[in-house]
Amino acid sequence: RTRRPRGGPSRPAPRDGALMGAVLAALGTMAAIAVVGWLLARSRALGPHAEQVLARAVFVIAAPSLLAVTIARADLALLLSRQALVIAATTLVVVAVAAAVLRGLWKRPVGEATIGTLAASYVNAGNLGIPIAVYLLGDAVAVVPTLLFQLLVLAPVAFTILDAQAERDPVREHAASGGQEPVADAADDVAAPARGRGLGRARRVLARTLRNPIIIGALTGVVLSVLPWDVPDVVLEPFRLIGAAAAPLALLTFGMSLAGLGRGADRDRSRPRELALVVVLRSVVHPLLAILLGRALGLEGVELLAVGTMAALPTAQNVLVYAVQYDRGRALARDAGLVTTLLALPVLLGIAALLS
């Protein structure tokens, strides 16, 4: 594979005006697609269950295909770089704070706390991160550590927790499994000894987790990446084409989720304190932590700007897809995605001004 050379000269940080253009272009594209989703939902052109169908299409086929191809072509050695260390360490701090407050202090249910933690830590590295990374470094290499950490660490842990909660809730398990029957009947647990019940539940959770399409896609990408030869493009091309639909479909789902605000069942709103926590962690705390730790580790110039920018990206729309899929924390995922996306431009321009 062609690897990006290391140790080259550091490029100067980009000018604010050029960065503004890149951010505006990316945000404008996202907004346009979300508006189309809003219009489709308002007109009911795709039927009453379109949001759930599109979310499931992203979750089951489009996102796994995108992840497999992206990771297969990534240089996993990037996980050992200083940039990757900054991203991993600061993201784990955000995860710990969000989980401690949502679950430990405010006693939110595990599923809702998990979605809230994802909303605070899982960033829009694909939709918005890739265009900005291309501008910063001339290619998408800056976004790879963030993508890999989210796909190989955050997503598997979150899905394991969400699958375990679905296992305890037969109704939501039935929805999360796409209408399939639960793996085992609850009567078996009642009849089995306590230890057997625990082992049986652990096996079922592990089986559900390993069948999770997102995790399958990420693991497939890792296997392809470590192979001693390159997988031919003709093999990956169908998955690349399907994966290209993940971002626009997720944005359409996001737009559809906004169409019902103030109407009927969608009058549910996120709790203000929870939304405030997620937004502050996502748009303020994480980028500041990344810049401070990056400086401490000797990053400077465009490398420091890159980690600060990646940490300041808004909440990924995939979080809403996961919330819809598991029927947990939909309002918080939706509102966090909206507010952090609106804040993305001033936050990114502030970082550019600070580090230029």
Score class of each variant (00 low, 15 high):
Gly8Leu: 12
Ile33His: 04
Ala34Met: 15
Trp38Gly: 13
Leu39Phe: 13
Arg42Leu: 06
Arg44Glu: 11
Glu51Lys: 00
Val53Asn: 13
Leu54Glu: 03
Ala55Arg: 03
Ala62Glu: 14
Val69Arg: 06
Arg73Ser: 07
Leu80Trp: 13
Arg82Glu: 07
Ile87His: 07
Leu92His: 09
Ala98Leu: 01
Ala100Arg: 01
Arg103Leu: 10
Trp106Ile: 05
Arg108Met: 07
Arg108Ser: 07
Ala113Gln: 00
Ile115Asp: 03
Ala125Asp: 09
Ile132Val: 13
Val143Lys: 02
Val144Gly: 01
Thr146Gly: 13
Val153Tyr: 05
Leu154Pro: 08
Pro156Cys: 11
Phe159Ala: 08
Leu162Lys: 02
Ala176Lys: 04
Ser177Leu: 14
Gln180Arg: 15
Ala184Arg: 09
Ala192Tyr: 09
Pro193Cys: 04
Pro193Ile: 01
Ala194Thr: 08
Gly198Pro: 14
Gly200Val: 06
Ala202Leu: 13
Arg203Leu: 14
Leu206Ile: 06
Thr209Met: 06
Arg211Gln: 12
Ile216Gly: 10
Leu219Gly: 11
Ser225Asn: 11
Val226His: 03
Val234Ser: 09
Glu237Leu: 14
Glu237Val: 14
Arg240Phe: 10
Thr253Asn: 06
Gly255Gln: 03
Gly255Pro: 01
Ser257Gly: 03
Ala265Pro: 15
Arg267Gln: 08
Asp268Pro: 09
Val278Gln: 00
Val278His: 00
Val278Met: 03
Val278Ala: 05
Val279Arg: 01
Leu288Met: 12
Leu292Arg: 09
Leu293Pro: 12
Gly294Trp: 01
Arg295Met: 15
Val302Ile: 15
Val302Pro: 11
Leu304Phe: 05
Leu305Cys: 06
Val307Met: 00
Met310Ala: 10
Ala316Met: 08
Leu320Ile: 00
Val321Gly: 02
Gln325Lys: 09
Arg328Pro: 06
Ala331Leu: 01
Ala333Tyr: 01
Asp335Pro: 02
Val339Asn: 00
Thr340Pro: 01
Gly350Trp: 04
Gly350Pro: 01
Leu354Phe: 13
